[in-house]
Computed example of a mutant assay.
Amino acid sequence: MTTGPSVHVHASGMSLTVRIGGEMVWQTAPFFRERLAVEITAARRRVVLDLSAVSFCDSAGLNELLWAWRLADQAGSVLVLACVPAKVQRMLARTGVGTFLRVYDTVGEAENALVARGGA
C-alpha cells in the first residue's frame, strides 16, 4: 500500500527543513511543485529537503528536485538534500545530478554544513 504525497515543513531562523513523503512521480509532481514553490520562496536562505519518507522517485520526481534547486538558487537560497533513500542516491549518481546537488546523510549534517559555509 502506498501513501499519498506529503510535505511537512519546519522553519528555524534562516533555515527551512522540508520533509517530502510518498511517491515522487508524474502524478504527484504538481502537488510537490505547488507546495515547494510556496516554501522555497518564503525568504529562507537555507533549505534542506529531507527525502527519508520518499517511497519511490522516477524521472518526473528527479525533475522536481532539479526544479526546486533552480528555484532556490533564483531566490538567493541554497537547497540541499538529506536522508536520501539508496535507490534515489543511485539515480542521482547515474544522472550526474549528484555532482552539483549536495546530499547529506542526515538533516543535522545538512544544517550544520550550510551554517558552516554561511549558507552557500
Score class of each variant (00 low, 15 high):
residue 60 A to T: 02
residue 48 V to W: 00
residue 19 R to G: 08
residue 56 F to C: 07
residue 83 C to D: 00
residue 62 L to R: 02
residue 71 L to S: 13
residue 99 T to W: 08
residue 88 V to F: 08
residue 64 E to V: 08
residue 111 E to V: 00
residue 89 Q to S: 14
residue 26 W to P: 00
residue 39 E to R: 06
residue 85 P to H: 10
residue 57 C to A: 05
residue 32 F to E: 11
residue 11 A to E: 09
residue 62 L to M: 11
residue 101 L to G: 12
residue 79 L to M: 13
residue 1 M to G: 15
residue 99 T to S: 15
residue 36 L to F: 11
residue 62 L to C: 07
residue 24 M to E: 11
residue 32 F to K: 11
residue 120 A to L: 05
residue 78 V to R: 09
residue 116 A to C: 02
residue 33 R to E: 15
residue 39 E to D: 10
residue 120 A to N: 05
residue 44 R to Y: 04
residue 107 V to G: 05
residue 33 R to W: 07
residue 68 A to E: 08
residue 43 A to R: 04
residue 52 S to E: 04
residue 120 A to G: 03
residue 120 A to C: 04
residue 107 V to Y: 01
residue 100 F to Y: 15
residue 84 V to L: 09
residue 22 G to S: 07
residue 48 V to T: 01
residue 40 I to R: 01
residue 110 A to G: 06
residue 27 Q to L: 06
residue 59 S to P: 05
residue 102 R to W: 07
residue 71 L to A: 14
residue 34 E to I: 08
residue 12 S to P: 00
residue 108 G to Q: 06
residue 57 C to I: 03
residue 102 R to C: 10
residue 33 R to C: 08
residue 23 E to Y: 10
residue 17 T to F: 09
residue 38 V to K: 15
residue 45 R to S: 14
residue 95 T to H: 13
residue 22 G to D: 07
residue 44 R to I: 01
residue 18 V to H: 02
